[in-house]
Design a protein around this nucleic acid. Structure first.
Lengths: 337, 337
DNA sequence: GCGTACAACTTATGCGCAAAAGTAACCGCC
DNA sequence: GGCGGTTACTTTTGCGCATAAGTTGTACGC
């Protein structure tokens, strides 16, 4: 761990001179010494001590990525392929810009913000974290924050959001189902807030535009918490006769549901049509391949990171970015009449 | 961002005193002042500046997790549910021990080690990174390193490895297939090194113990790189008639293969039996549910992190830890005679 | 009543770096 | 030939923290 001081000593010059060539300050140092220093730096494989640099500069070159931990059947949000892809996009973008990524998995925003504070993190990306309560906590730290997929009204006032045109995606899917002759279409989700609410809204809108009445009995709730899952699945399968199609709020739920239906001898799409949302591996590898709404999760991560980076550079950004969706027609929807 | 200095000033005492109560140094400070300081600390919500602390202490409380990026059909290793789970396990363990996690995704070990060096990372967990070449690079940094799933001979000499009893898992699976009457069993993988080699070895051993001859034509190679995948899949499906069972080296490949077979009208397990390895979501949600070998990936991450933490505390650890596997019998293997 | 021991502090130093402020030599110009 | 301007440096300072070294004050023993 050689230091600037040591280098300066060995080269018989001041630390400032060494520091200046490290930072490529033109005109502050002669071509001659510059060369000498550069050679030496290469030889000894100098690496700056980031702690010292950060302390002196009051910055950190760290971007935090905070994911809300979720205790359910899949134990933890991070297992979802969605999250892996997101992390990949964020990490890549950040690294290319010379930043580093620190990952937190926690549901306690207070805890997260304390980390942010100790590390003097330059900016933060939040996924699934912002409840209206979290906003007060995060606001006082005065750090640029970009949220992913939040629909919190309060949050949107204060932070940039990178999201998806969930409503449109959902609308397109339901319209497609209707075009295939479906009229009794259920909506399956585990809650009615955030992204799920937006997708539900798109669903309702499409029904309305087709003059199909929405009833709350069309809303099927899945309980992903380990204990309740089999029970809710059983109930949903029972009630599946009432519908010709079930639109699921995610690929994960769609595939889970199809498995449960298959186990009970109900065929997809023979007896009932099922659709997903997200378009991940799960549905792509499934047979019949899942009809779903595509979103590019990696781009979501990249966009979030790029937006944050822009803000760090002092540039202004839109405070609401909506990525487009695309309808992917595969084999889990049957045309009926 | 209140500092110790500021606190000391407001409390009319020296920074050392404040620092002492922060570090809970008994006997260095009176009960009275201790109380006063603690109250004040709470009031102002003091958070230490980690950069300053690390600089003074020459440590970092950071543990790096480096993942090898892989350019294939799934773009990047991180998409695999395997990796998500691993990250989850590592992060949780590290955070509970008061450490922080920095995530790198890169295939350049030199780059990684440079990061490690600038940040003065306390320890490193490497997944999929150690080729014999990487070892020289990493060795000179003299940091505790724990590898996950490496089979590099050189690496094992220098670093601790947390792995799986891949050979045994594979052996158990093939033995099971044989017990179900299978004799023409192919092995599907994308390479013959590392984990794949160990699984292949277990496969060969089981064949040998059952007096079935192994021929290299039993080895089916899949090319996960985006361009080659369809071609290799086509070839594998063609050749599937030669076998009554194909043991795949991962759930991902198993499910991918089953999809390809299904698309060609070949039924699983009717026409051919297929098995996986890993036991992740993909196979669990698949119908027919995948017969596979279970490994607890989260435990792998937890174990790796815990082992590294031990080393940081100066404790000795075994330099080879093998987690057990478990045969999971589900529905993709048919009994034949 | 003096030395010793100890409790409860404070002062001073250094970690490695960046940058502000200082210096010294030289050039050209009226 | 004195002065402003420039080049190529060096010296100094401070970021926030931990800690070694120093300073009181007081109780105790003999």
């Amino acid at each position: 761990m050689i230091t600037i001081k040591e280098i300066a000593k060995q080269l018989n010059m001041s630390t400032t001179t060494v520091s200046n060539v490290i930072h490529g300050k033109e005109g502050e140092v002669s071509e001659d010494t510059r060369k000498k220093v550069k050679e030496f730096l290469n030889k000894v494989d100098y690496v700056p001590n980031i702690n010292a640099r950060n302390l002196a500069q009051n910055e950190s070159k760290i971007i935090g990525l905070a994911l809300k931990a979720r205790a359910d059947k899949y134990e933890n949000l991070i297992m979802d392929p969605f999250v892996s892809e997101l992390i990949g996009g964020v990490e890549e973008t950040i690294r290319n810009a010379g930043y580093f990524m620190m990952l937190y998995i926690s549901s306690d925003i207070g805890e997260i913000m304390r980390h942010v504070s100790t590390w003097n993190v330059d900016g933060l990306i939040l996924f699934g974290m912002i409840g209206d309560d979290g906003i007060r906590v995060s606001e006082k730290y005065k750090k640029p924050i970009v949220c992913i997929d939040t629909y919190s009204i309060e949050g949107l006032k204060h932070f940039t959001n990178v999201g998806l045109d969930d409503e449109q995606g959902s609308y397109d899917m339901v319209s497609y189902l209707i075009s295939q002759g479906h009229r009794k279409i259920a909506f399956l989700s585990d809650n009615q807030s955030g992204v799920d609410f937006a997708r539900l809204t798109g669903y309702k809108k499409a029904l309305k535009d087709a003059r199909i009445r929405y009833s709350s009995s069309n809303f099927l709730q899945i309980h992903p918490k380990s204990d309740d899952l089999p029970g809710s699945l059983e109930e949903i399968c029972q009630r599946s006769k009432e519908f010709s199609a079930i639109m699921c709020v995610s690929d994960l739920y769609a595939v889970t549901l199809i498995s449960a239906l298959t186990d009970r001898g109900i065929s997809v799409p023979g007896d009932i049509s099922i659709t997903g949302f997200d378009d991940n591996m799960l549905g792509q590898l499934h047979r019949p391949a899942l009809t779903t709404v595509h979103q590019d999760v990696k781009v979501k991560g990249v966009t979030a990171a790029a937006t944050l980076l822009k803000q760090l550079r002092g540039q202004r950004t839109a405070n609401q970015i909506k990525l487009p969706t695309k309808l992917i027609i595969r084999d889990t929807v049957r045309k009926i009449n």
